[in-house]
């Protein structure tokens, strides 16, 4: 459970006073960030990564829509479709791939400010929603 909600993988998240954030890694040697956590640094090839809380806000870097229901391993529930995906730049850290709450192309513009939220993507066996992370536009 993260922020009182069931998630696809709690290890992806950190709880902060401002709300859920993503858990990443930062290289103690060169400062490169990754998401999710990993042991090796893809920039300097070192192996001294430390856990870091990634920024909850950023800007839309690129985006697209998902026009068909994917095959397995996708487990989403139709009630939460269609969905859109994007890359959101978290300044000074990295550019994270994410689902978007907004799916209307007319309302998406590269550079717009965004914030992380939890969003349902499937129902579990008892009909309770399971959440993943998504970004939603915020007024600048």
């Amino acid at each position: 459970m993260i922020a009182g909600r069931t998630t696809v993988d709690d290890a992806l998240f950190v709880e902060t006073p401002e709300g859920p954030a993503l858990r990443g890694s930062r290289c103690a040697g060169c400062g490169a960030h990754t998401f999710p956590v990993q042991d090796g640094c893809p920039r300097c090839t070192g192996s001294s990564m430390v856990d870091v809380t990634l920024a909850r806000t950023g800007t839309l870097w690129s985006w697209t829509s998902q026009g068909f229901t994917p095959k397995a391993p996708y487990t989403g529930t139709a009630a939460y479709e269609p969905y859109a995906v994007a890359y959101v730049e978290l300044p000074g850290q990295l550019i994270v791939e994410t689902r978007l709450v907004e799916t209307d192309p007319e309302k998406l513009e590269i550079g717009m400010p965004m914030e992380l939220v939890l969003t349902p993507f499937r129902d579990d066996g008892s009909g309770e929603p399971v959440h993943t992370f998504a970004f939603v536009g915020v007024s600048s």
Partner: peptide, 26 residues
């Protein structure tokens, strides 16, 4: 990559190409 990536519908090549050209055109 962890199972969450596929389960949430992000392990899809067609999305990547959409996002890559979206950024490139921009």
């Amino acid at each position: 990559i962890g199972p969450w990536y596929g389960e949430t519908g992000m392990m899809i090549t067609t999305q990547f190409f959409g996002m890559k050209i979206q950024r490139y055109l921009h």
